[in-house]
Write a protein that binds this DNA or RNA. Sequence first.
DNA 1: TCACCTGAGATTGTAGACAATCGCCCGAAC
DNA 2: GTTCGGGCGATTGTCTACAATCTCAGGTGA
Lengths: 221, 221
Amino acid sequence: MEARQPTLADRTLTQLQHAIIGGELRPGSKINEQEIATRFGVSRGPLREALQRLEQRRLIERIPHVGARVATLTEARLNDLYQVRAELESMACRLAAGRIKPEQLAQLHQLLDRQEAVFSSQPVTEFQDDIDFHYGIIQASGNQTLIATLTGDLYHQLQMYRYQCSSGRRPLEALAQHRAILAAIADGDGEMAALLMRRHIEAGARHTRQVLRQKMEESSG
Amino acid sequence: MEARQPTLADRTLTQLQHAIIGGELRPGSKINEQEIATRFGVSRGPLREALQRLEQRRLIERIPHVGARVATLTEARLNDLYQVRAELESMACRLAAGRIKPEQLAQLHQLLDRQEAVFSSQPVTEFQDDIDFHYGIIQASGNQTLIATLTGDLYHQLQMYRYQCSSGRRPLEALAQHRAILAAIADGDGEMAALLMRRHIEAGARHTRQVLRQKMEESSG
DNA sequence: TCACCTGAGATTGTAGACAATCGCCCGAAC
DNA sequence: GTTCGGGCGATTGTCTACAATCTCAGGTGA
């Protein structure tokens, strides 16, 4: 009922988004509708629908009668994004501490355990698991507006920055921080959880910012 | 350059949004693409584009192969919306206090003066002026992600609630609160401005919630 | 009586063609 | 030499028609 059976436009959106987040379509490059449509084997209708959603997610920028371009990675945008994210995710922690359900809590504990178990063997998994953890807490907040804002809008941009600026995200450190956050939530200490989450995200922002700077230096030099 | 010259889809979006926010298309009612397209004198292409944006703004809900419905007003959704709004707008105040430009500050003062001058003669103006005030502060925050989240997403929903649940919003009280908020920002006291804004929005939430309850009672009774 | 299946009608999703607009190149005038 | 204007090619916006899917009424069987 609720689950939307994927349409052609949905699949095209997923493909395009992966291509953008993964850097296959480089930031700033122009998107030719006919070309992309042909490449994906769809007509321009579904493709334009996908483009529109990507514009909403701020992964591309469109100008009427001119066209679409892949969004560029900027330090200023990164700062703005992480600043809002820190505010909203710490808010999510505060809410989650008061109303998280036992099964949600158990699932998050399980996630961290699994993350720890495979931590050294598969560094790739860590990336998705990290997102899953944050996603779980956001869901536990129970605030539908908050959930939609974070997972429906901000997270797509975030993934682009994280994917293109990732390199050894110190999973051990992040894991410890996740554990502390979850413990605070389990204790019902919303303020502590919120503060820990804010620090955790700020640390991530510093790291990503550093990598972005390096990347921009070597691309301009 | 930046200004997007309005296309047919843009105009259709504006019309449809006004019809939804104004209650002409009642909450929960189904939207027949062909019917609406014919009524607005456009084809289904641009209309579908408008529908998609309205879905992003959460003014309608769509299910593939089934159709679109106008979003319903719920007390739970109202609470969630105002909770996130309070968090983000108080954040905007904190930022604005540190980096608002003189001309922005002057413009906001001007706005409040004008609001006070015509306050008793035209109660209708107050509604738009109130939005303009909040809009100005959000802009002054300088955080593009914050601006986009608030004015691009949340505010459309907010307008729907406010328009359909407005009745004597005590403009005098709101005006005084606006003045206090602006004074704090002018003083560079971000924390004070943030707190005042939070209280101001919470007061608005209580008022709107009350009106919504009345409305739902008389519609179900 | 109720649950389930089935088919007609309606509605949405997709494709392809046409119209409108823009960017760019080139030539002319100062 | 530089700047302005016009026209051509390319790209985007829009329309119409067709295909895929859902809804709902009606009937059938337990």
